[in-house]
């Protein structure tokens, strides 16, 4: 049983991954709900963790693995309004997931049932990684950089040093480069400050496919900031933190993307 105060939050999370992965299992235990799935080309991977405190009420008395088709769950979530409360429940035997939406004023109740699937998922083990560079920037800025550079080239090189982070690309029509200085990320005198907060152990430069990076920016509505984790010889981790309605941290959505390599 999981009761979420704003159904729209779950919809945003599913919408941010449904174009990348077709199917996934929701692994539920008493602490929360975890998902891990790779895209069909095995180049990128998405994980999310929805902690117990994301929900108004949460109980799960035994570990469950719920096989979900992403297009189907997205269709059901679209039937609710974003400020409806949403109660998720499973039956016994566990072959359906039920969605009960209740409008804010309590005048409308709707219920949908999603047929669950038996999925044999390939699962990767992601070790705890000491990244060389951790870059925090505004989601809107990261999204704009990716979309702008994608009009020029197919891949983007991210280079992080102590002083700045640069994003550059090359295509048939020419080149593009965007550089963000190390500085405070956020608002200042009601003006957005477009800079990046950089924590660095060692400078890193890696290239990534813009097509995938653009998929990731669909999570931009979850949070103001995005955190890029980079290290030599490891996939990029793009992290969006998830907050509950009390603005407490209540989980994350993380994308992993294998770099382009010189052969």
């Amino acid at each position: 049983n999981a009761l979420i105060k704003q159904a729209g939050l779950l919809k945003k999370i599913i919408d941010a991954i449904k174009d990348l992965i077709d199917e996934a299992t929701l692994d539920c235990d008493n602490d929360g709900i975890y998902l891990q799935a790779m895209d069909s080309s095995h180049v990128s991977l998405v994980t999310f963790y929805l902690k117990k405190n994301l929900f108004e009420k949460y109980s799960c008395n035994r570990n469950l693995s719920l096989g979900i088709n992403m297009t189907s769950i997205a269709k059901i979530l679209k039937c609710g309004m974003s400020d409806d409360t949403l109660l998720l429940e499973t039956n016994n035997p566990i072959d359906i997931l039920s969605f009960k939406f209740e409008s804010r004023r309590g005048h409308k109740l709707s219920q949908f049932q999603l047929r669950l699937m038996n999925l044999e998922m390939e699962r990767l083990s992601i070790p705890d990684t000491e990244y060389s560079c951790i870059i925090e920037m505004m989601c809107s800025e990261f999204s704009k950089v990716c979309h702008d550079l994608a009009t020029i080239g197919d891949s983007m090189t991210i280079t992080c040093t102590k002083k700045n982070v640069t994003f550059d690309t090359t295509g048939d029509l020419g080149t593009g480069i965007v550089s963000l200085k190390q500085g405070v990320v956020g608002s200042e005198n009601d003006e957005n400050v477009y800079a990046a907060s950089i924590k660095i152990v060692k400078p890193v430069s890696l290239s990534f496919s813009l097509r995938y990076l653009i998929y990731f920016t669909k999570a931009s509505s979850l949070s103001n900031k995005v955190i890029l984790h980079m290290g030599e010889e490891v996939p990029l981790m793009v992290e969006y933190k998830i907050f509950n309605t009390y603005e407490e941290e209540a989980g994350y959505l993380r994308y992993f993307l294998a770099p382009k390599v010189n052969e």
Partner: peptide, 14 residues
């Protein structure tokens, strides 16, 4: 030549 790596080159299967 630049090629796209796969995730399994970096992370083992669970």
């Amino acid at each position: 030549k630049v090629t796209q790596a796969e995730l399994s080159q970096f992370y083992p299967e669970d």
